[in-house]
């Protein structure tokens, strides 16, 4: 067996395992989906209450696509935390698997899961509000999602090291990071309303560019060529964050092995 085959097989191990976990927790999956749909509907109804079609679209896009981004971020960022909680972290770390392989498997599953989860919410909201997407530029939205996902995966990988570095607080730090991204990325409002220092921070979040690009594509039907200013930062962040995430993960693993932080707790 070639090394590549072995690594691919190992990568699929994480996809299959996460799929099995999703099946076993199907009750929670349904509950979470209902909650996400209810949350997206509630937020979008604010636009209906205001009688503003553009606001309806804007809020709907924020709710739906933030759901996607947060699902992807959580899945990757909690890769270590899940294993620590279940007590399997040491077993996985002992296996002859490169960390890149592990992260690749977790990432692929996160993207597929996020797309399905978000797709269901999108369909429900479009049907509920009877929205007309005939003028939307779906290619623009799709491209922003694809490129933006890469950047978000990179941030997720960076966040995944926190539970390696901080046994007790790592997961809490990850949650706080996700909350900050929600606040500064203009999920439900324009980043122009943020204080100046927050606007600066918003430029560091890939979600800002993703949501801006998706809104312009779906609401205004703008082609991707008109939005290159939003695309380049995403590409740059993807190029930076993914290698940086893998590198940082390796460093964090070595630190954890030196200090004994792979050991089970909880």
């Amino acid at each position: 067996m070639t090394s590549a085959t072995r690594e691919l097989r190992a990568s699929y191990a994480f996809i299959e395992r996460n799929f099995n976990l999703t099946k076993r927790y199907w009750g929670w999956e349904v509950a979470w989906l209902v909650y996400s749909i209810a949350g997206a509907l509630s937020v979008t109804l604010i636009g209906l209450d205001q009688g503003n079609r553009r606001l309806i679209f804007s809020l709907m896009i924020g709710a739906i696509f933030w759901n996607y981004l947060s699902v992807v971020f959580s899945f990757i960022a909690e890769t270590i935390e899940w294993e620590r909680w279940e007590g399997t972290l040491e077993y996985t770390m002992m296996a002859p698997v490169r960390r890149f392989t592990q992260l690749l498997g977790s990432t692929v599953y996160a993207l597929v899961y996020g797309l399905i989860h978000t797709g269901v919410i999108l369909v429900v909201l479009v049907l509920f509000f009877g929205l007309d997407l005939s003028h939307a530029n779906l290619a623009t939205a799709g491209l922003f999602m694809a490129v933006g996902s890469v950047s978000f995966v990179g941030i997720g990988m960076m966040a995944a090291i926190l539970p390696l570095l901080y046994v007790e607080r790592g997961a809490q730090m990850t949650f706080v990071l996700q909350s900050v991204l929600l606040l500064i990325s203009g999920v439900y409002y324009s980043t122009d309303v943020l204080p100046g220092w927050m606007q600066l921070l918003s430029k560091l979040s890939p979600a800002t560019y993703i949501l801006d690009g998706v809104r312009k594509g779906l609401i205004d039907g703008e082609p991707i060529t008109a939005l290159l200013g939003d695309v380049w930062p995403l590409i740059g962040m993807g190029i930076f964050f993914i290698p940086a995430g893998i590198w940082a993960f390796g460093r964090a693993e070595r630190y954890a092995k030196r200090t004994g932080k792979l050991k089970r707790v909880g």
């Binding site: 067996m1 085959t5 072995r6 097989r9 190992a10 699929y12 191990a13 299959e16 395992r17 099995n20 077993y91 996985t92 296996a95 002859p96 698997v97």
Partner: peptide, 10 residues
């Protein structure tokens, strides 16, 4: 066990 087997390239 399936997870373990795949991790070890089986």
């Amino acid at each position: 066990l399936s997870f373990a087997a795949r991790l070890y390239g089986m």
